[in-house]
Design a protein around this nucleic acid. Sequence first.
DNA 1: ATTCTAACA
DNA 2: TGTTAGCA
Length: 137
Amino acid sequence: MPDRTYSISDLASEFGVTTRTIRFYEEKGLVHPRREGQKRLYSAADRVRIKLILRGKRIGMSLQESVEVIDLYDPEHNNEEQLHSLISTVREKRERLLQQKKDIDDMLAGLDEVQSLCEQALQDKPASPTTRNRQRR
DNA sequence: ATTCTAACA
DNA sequence: TGTTAGCA
């Protein structure tokens, strides 16, 4: 049954998002589920597409960026122009991640310093009565 | 009970 | 995106 279909709530609950989020992606043209009257019917392919979009979101990609990557799986768009576009996107993504890594390392260093000062202050000061009570247990 | 559209926060 | 209203 590889041709199973999913309701919008099926996918929403599976991916931990609201149905609004999935409809929102459709508004943005990220997915085009087929309809059965008014109701949306998502195919296994639609499901994968949404999964990839959410993954891209987690690693900081914009919805548009995710679409660019996802479209590579579509033979129709594997032309030279698209590939150049993707290479450009990947390069920019790499630069952004490196910058984030630097910012995180700097902040981590700052936190180490603060923690060190706090521990130092506790060590140089005699334990308060309440602290002694906790230590006794 | 579910889903849908539309509109507003 | 969340929420909410009013339908089907």
